[in-house]
């Protein structure tokens, strides 16, 4: 009997010693598996075992950015959802709310983030930036000014830069599919 008891006890102890999943990881698993994304959005997991780092690709099907495939990197840390994920645009694009380093001006990524929000809310917010770029809250001032001054010219510049051309001494990445 003692041997059996000792084995059971050892098994129980061994179980307790295993590293556990963090609350952040559980929440991320839930957020990701319960996403209901439209066909314009696709996720890429370089490592399917690591749900905290992945890429989102948005291909708007309407608006000025139609035809482009825009990639965003998501990095979630163990303080999620107390802290928002870190999201960057991984290509250089011409957009009033995204700067040339990939930083994004989206309120829920920073000042309006609440733990009750989730990854889907962020992704929807990002897509909206392509459907309705906001020139009145600019991160890229020149792009914002261009959009306000002449929307037609702005649309043309967007098309040109999506092809991966140089504009005003900046080389943009090709994002057209």
């Amino acid at each position: 009997m003692n041997k059996l008891w000792a084995m059971k006890r050892a098994a129980a102890d061994a179980e307790k010693k295993k590293p556990k999943v963090s609350a952040a990881q559980i929440r991320v698993q839930k957020d990701i598996t319960e996403l209901s994304l439209p066909s314009t959005m696709r996720l890429d997991f370089p490592n399917p075992d690591d749900l905290m780092h992945f890429q989102l690709c948005i291909t708007p099907d309407e608006g000025m950015y139609q035809g482009g495939c825009f990639r965003f990197s998501f990095a979630i840390d163990h303080n999620y959802p107390h802290e928002a994920p870190k999201v960057l645009c991984t290509q250089r694009i011409y957009h009033p709310n995204i700067d040339l380093d990939g930083k994004i001006c989206l309120n829920i990524l920073r000042e309006d983030w609440k733990p009750v929000l989730n990854l889907e809310a962020i992704m929807v917010g990002l897509q909206f930036l392509f459907l309705a770029p906001n020139p009145d809250d600019p991160l890229n001032k020149e792009a914002a000014q261009d959009l306000r001054a002449n929307p037609k010219d702005f649309a043309n510049t967007v098309k040109a830069t999506m092809r991966g051309s140089r504009y005003n001494n900046v080389i943009y990445d090709k994002v057209l599919l």
């Binding site: 700067d99 001006c105 990524l109 920073r110 000042e111 983030w113 600019p138 991160l139």
Partner: peptide, 10 residues
């Protein structure tokens, strides 16, 4: 307290 990035930038 977190500030909007566009306020910080521009």
């Amino acid at each position: 307290v977190v500030y909007p990035i566009c306020t910080i930038a521009n």
